[in-house]
């Protein structure tokens, strides 16, 4: 039991933090815990959570995906342009956009695993290339509005539950199974812990890396399509906030940013914490600029609290006072 607690301590901390934050916010802001408001937050969390899904896989594998903003943006623009406000073309528009996202991800993976380009450079470059490409393609003009079906997916409900949250839940189950119950998951953790040991153990490192980035491209594209439904149309720059939030959600969820550990359950908590924060801060009546500053600082503090570095620091501190030691020799 103790061991179980220790292993999942980071995730438990994230959820505990989320609950504390929720209660805190409900004090500051009346009506925060109302059904409709909670539903809105769940929907907003879903967008972060879906982008962060692929990011979770990439980070566990020891990489990072900085191309999510414009993969998301491209998918959104592509789908709305192809559909042009009608549901009919979606039958091919959605698969094309998702496949495009996956393809860009695969490209990231090949560049990193096959040609040894550092993940930061590879994905950052792809992000900029996509940004430029889409500017050329659209001429910078706003695109057509989202077709009704996509709007339904993003803001519609089945019973009391928003559709997008149901989609998120299904993806979460799949992600958790993939991480904990499949060879792919096992290899991913091994590779993130030590690429050399994984290589020496016969892990198919090229395939694993490509798969992880492909998944990230896919979920970024999926989030882009769904987000158009929420904002009613695609616009340039809509993906930009998701770079920071997708990485922060993974880190708050207890994953090591250096790879080898983490879980999607944790990332979900991370997405929720980030959404509640964005809800809490406006209630403090700050100016827009001050809001951003506070937001950044709060995320910084949260992530460092959740990260190993801080728990290591505390472990060292307690050890130097000779209270509780961890077995190691």
């Amino acid at each position: 039991m103790n061991a179980l607690l220790a292993r999942h301590r980071a995730v438990l901390l994230a959820y505990l933090g989320m609950i504390v934050l929720l209660l805190l916010t409900s004090f500051v802001s009346q009506g925060f815990l109302s059904g409709s408001h909670l539903r809105t937050m769940a929907v907003l969390s879903a967008f972060i959570g879906i982008v962060a899904l692929g990011q979770t896989f990439v980070i566990i594998g020891g990489g990072i995906d900085l191309s999510v903003p414009w993969v998301l943006n491209c998918a959104a623009v592509l789908v709305t342009l192809m559909a042009n406000g009608a549901d009919g073309p979606l039958i091919y528009a959605i698969p094309i956009a998702l496949a495009g996202g996956a393809l860009v991800g695969a490209l990231n993976g090949f560049g990193i695993a096959l040609f040894g380009v550092p993940p930061i450079i590879m994905t950052l470059a792809v992000n900029v290339i996509l940004q430029g490409g889409i500017l050329i393609y659209t001429g910078g003009a706003p695109t057509a509005s989202a077709p009704p079906l996509i709007q339904f997916l993003a803001v519609g409900r089945i019973g009391p539950l928003p559709v997008v949250v149901l989609i998120w839940a299904a993806l979460a189950v799949a992600a958790t199974l993939l991480l904990s119950r499949t060879a792919f998951g096992r290899y991913l953790y091994a590779q993130g812990t030590s690429a050399t040991v994984a290589e020496f153990s016969g892990v198919p490192t090229l395939r694993i890396t490509v798969l992880a980035y492909t998944l990230s491209g896919f979920t970024a594209a999926a989030a882009g399509i769904l987000l158009t439904g929420y904002t009613a149309q695609a616009y340039l720059g809509m993906g930009d906030p998701y770079l920071f939030t997708s990485i922060a959600a993974v880190a708050i969820g207890g994953a090591s940013i250096l790879g080898g550990s983490g879980s999607y359950i944790g990332t979900i908590a991370g997405a929720l914490v980030l959404t509640i924060l964005t809800g809490l801060l406006p209630a403090l009546n700050l100016s827009n600029g001050a809001l951003l500053v506070v937001y950044g600082v709060v995320i910084l503090v949260t992530v460092s609290l959740a990260s190993d570095a801080v728990s290591d620091f505390f472990a060292v501190m307690t050890r130097s006072f000779g209270r509780r030691d961890n077995a190691q020799s």
Binding site: L177, A183, R186, Y189, A190, T193, V197, F200, S201, V203
Partner: peptide, 27 residues
């Protein structure tokens, strides 16, 4: 080169033979 120090003895032992206990893609 040999060990994932921060992973369990179990995961280390079976890292090279994951397919041996995988059925329909699941461990």
């Amino acid at each position: 080169h040999g060990l994932l120090l921060s992973k369990s003895v179990r995961e280390n032992l079976t890292l090279s033979v994951v397919p041996r206990f995988t059925r329909f893609g699941f461990l």
